[in-house]
Simulated assay, not measured.
Amino acid sequence: MSRYLDSEGPWLEAGEAVSAWHVLTAANQLRERPGDIVARLEQLGHSLADDVRLPEFVSSRDLLLLRGPNDDDHEPELTVVGETVPMGHVLWCATELECPPAVVREMLALLGHLLPSGASVPERVLSDDLLMLSAELDWRAPWLPVDEPVPLGHILRVAARLGRPPVEVAAQLVGFGHRLPEGVVLPAEVHPDDLWVLSKRLDGQPPWLEPGRPAGIWHVLAAAQEVGEPPEETAERLAELGHPLPPGMVAAHGAEYFDLVEIDTGPSPDRPLTLADVLRMAGSRHSPADTARRLQDLGFTLAGDVVYE
């Protein structure tokens, strides 16, 4: 009845269907047949998920198919009823079980888990495929999620790593069942600073700016300072990559004119700035009057009747 099979809450909801992972993992822990676990769960008001065909006995192969790597660094892969299978997981399992990816696909289908619609399974596993499907580019889980568009930063990072055009990498990811951000324009090649400015932490690695969302003004200023170019050039490049500044914002001054301790610690442009905001951004290096004027140049509005001199 424990959702994570650890004898503790959270518990299965009343009448909730259970996944193949739940049944097979419980059977393995209790040294019982999967059918006996299903029978007991039915007595408790639960049923096996539709389209699941359980084996008569638990095997290490089936546990690997559903769990993925068995270590403390990874959560089990396919625990949710009907969860879609990432292609990276299919290829990893094929490598571990030394069988064609198509065989893995069929075994997972029997256990109630399908690939994304339209995904094309390769005949064999290539190292480059595992790398591009890995969120950290380390040939292993966590894999790119199938329910989210692939961030442009990931596509460009793979292209730079493999020495391939971004459009080629993107096409292969689409073939594997992933989707691109809506309206994304892929550059012909990877600019040396692209990965840095697309990274939320400005280190050229994930997490990336979220697809389809504007770049925050403070991210733009910090990114420009990091790569050593004028803020307006960084803003222009991010706009080309699908991350324009919010309406009304202008990269008119560099980060050095504000007391910006960390990325995205500046005030939000969604509200007028208070005196406290201005004083915080001025810090001890700049006068409040100069800071207020520069904030207005960026597109911020000031609250109240405070006169900055």
Rank of each mutant, 00 (worst) to 15 (best):
S7T: 03
D138L: 10
S19L: 14
L279V: 07
E148D: 08
R157Y: 03
E32P: 01
A303Y: 10
W92S: 02
L152I: 01
E233Y: 02
R157C: 04
I155K: 08
E8V: 15
R61E: 15
A17C: 15
A17D: 15
E96F: 04
L91D: 01
L180G: 06
A276L: 14
G266Q: 01
D36Y: 10
D264L: 09
I37Y: 00
A235T: 01
L78G: 09
V90A: 11
G283R: 04
L186E: 13
E148T: 04
E210Q: 11
P165S: 08
G304T: 14
S284H: 03
P100F: 07
D297S: 08
H46S: 12
W11V: 06
E123L: 07
A303G: 12
A141L: 05
E8Y: 14
G228S: 03
I217W: 14
K200F: 06
A160R: 07
E229P: 05
G283N: 07
E8W: 13
P69F: 00
L144P: 09
W143F: 10
L209M: 12
G299H: 11
L91R: 00
L137V: 10
M132D: 08
R31Y: 14
E98D: 13
P214D: 02
G153E: 10
D129S: 10
P272S: 14
G299S: 12
E106P: 05
D193R: 05
L111V: 13
L302K: 04
L298P: 10
E96S: 13
A289C: 06
D6Q: 11
P10Y: 03
V38C: 05
R293S: 15
W143A: 08
F57V: 14
M107E: 09
P145Y: 08
G9P: 09
D290E: 11
A170T: 11
H191Y: 03
W11T: 08
D138M: 13
F300C: 14
P69V: 00
G112K: 05
L114T: 08
H22D: 00
V307Q: 07
G283F: 07
L198D: 00
R67F: 02
R179M: 15
H219M: 12
P207N: 06
P211E: 15
S287Y: 13
A223V: 11
E189R: 07
R124P: 04
R213F: 05
D297H: 08
S117C: 12
E77T: 05
R105G: 12
S199T: 08
L115R: 12
D36T: 10
L108P: 04
P122T: 12
G9S: 13
A141C: 05
V278Y: 04
L108N: 11
D305N: 13
V146T: 01
L78T: 05
M132F: 07
R271F: 06
Q205E: 04
A215E: 03
E226P: 05
V121M: 00
T265P: 00
L137G: 12
R164C: 07
E13W: 10
A20G: 06
L298N: 10
Q225Y: 02
G112N: 01
A26D: 03
A223Y: 00
P86K: 08
S59A: 12
Y257P: 05
V307G: 10
Y308T: 02
